[in-house]
């Protein structure tokens, strides 16, 4: 449970990879408040993956710091669940054991963790697939297992690394709606990175636009399309709303403006 006012804060963080002259991230600050769904959008090389890896604790910043509810993040931990682009499931475990894996690591008993895993599988519409082998599932289903695995460990924040990037357009839309439903039901804050503009505008409560060389945040927007869908408005109705279309075009224009500026700067 995250108390009101508790936050995940990225405070003036920079990252310089060893052996690289370019700065991967330059002076990035970001707050992920409870109940928010923060989306980082940008082209490849803008540092969004670096930012997610920092928050997950997979890498450490060159300068600046990251805190979760006041405590500095020093490495990976169960309070920050991660959903990976290529599911990263364990093929020797079946669906339910994959979902219960985090609980198993915490030493939760078999009966209890399976009950919890069953419950989460129901949440992601995978009821009845408990005993399936994960390598027999489709890409979309595997991604749902990955989401269920992260949720089962009951993290305080859900980090999603281009989770729908490898899926086809139909499945991707389904997954976006599923994510919004779970986000609303569980009340978990989410930090998601993507390069899909429509996805970013649809999902985000807070959208941060990033740009490369050096990787930095160039624009922040507060949006409510995701909330509208979570409150019951159909996805198609939200996405065909002129306001949505205008915002999507606005973001698109920004992305191109920054890209051209970067190219001009480099030339």
């Amino acid at each position: 449970m995250s108390q009101p006012g508790s936050r995940l804060i990225v405070d003036h963080v920079s990252v310089q990879y060893a052996g690289s002259s370019a700065t991967a991230l330059h002076d990035v600050s970001l707050a992920i408040a409870p109940e928010s769904l923060v989306v980082a959008l940008g082209p490849s090389g803008c540092g969004k993956t670096t930012l997610l890896n920092l928050v997950a604790g997979f890498i450490t910043p060159t300068s600046g710091q990251i805190t979760l509810d006041g405590k500095p993040v020093t490495g990976p931990g169960a309070e920050r669940g991660v959903v990976f682009q290529d599911d990263a499931l364990l093929p020797w475990l079946n669906v339910i054991d994959n979902v219960a894996f985090g609980l198993q690591l915490q030493g939760v008993g078999k009966r209890e963790r399976e009950a919890r895993a069953r419950q989460v599988l129901q949440q992601v519409d995978l009821h009845g697939y408990e005993q399936q082998k994960v390598w027999e599932l489709s890409g979309g289903m595997r991604q749902r297992v990955g989401l269920a695995r992260a949720l089962a460990a009951d993290p305080q924040v859900l980090l999603m690394d281009e989770p729908f990037g490898a899926l086809d357009a139909f499945i991707r839309e389904q997954m976006q709606e599923l994510l919004l439903r779970i986000w609303r039901q569980s009340g978990k804050r989410v930090f998601l990175i993507t390069h899909d503009i429509e996805e970013a505008v649809f999902l985000a409560t807070d959208l941060v636009l990033m740009s490369p060389r050096p990787g930095r945040i160039v624009e922040r927007l507060s949006l409510d399309f995701g909330r509208r869908h979570a409150a019951g408005e159909p996805a198609r109705s939200v996405k065909s709303d002129p306001e949505f279309i205008a915002m999507r075009e606005h973001v698109l224009a920004k992305v191109f403006a920054h890209r051209n500026a970067t190219i001009a700067g480099a030339a």
Binding site: G57, P76, A78, V82, F84, A88, L90, Q104, L105, A153
Partner: peptide, 22 residues
Amino acid sequence: DNARVRAALSLGASRWQLIRHV
């Protein structure tokens, strides 16, 4: 696969658990 290792770490795996389970 590095992603599997990271997945286990982000689920709170210790070094021994990582070796044993991943």
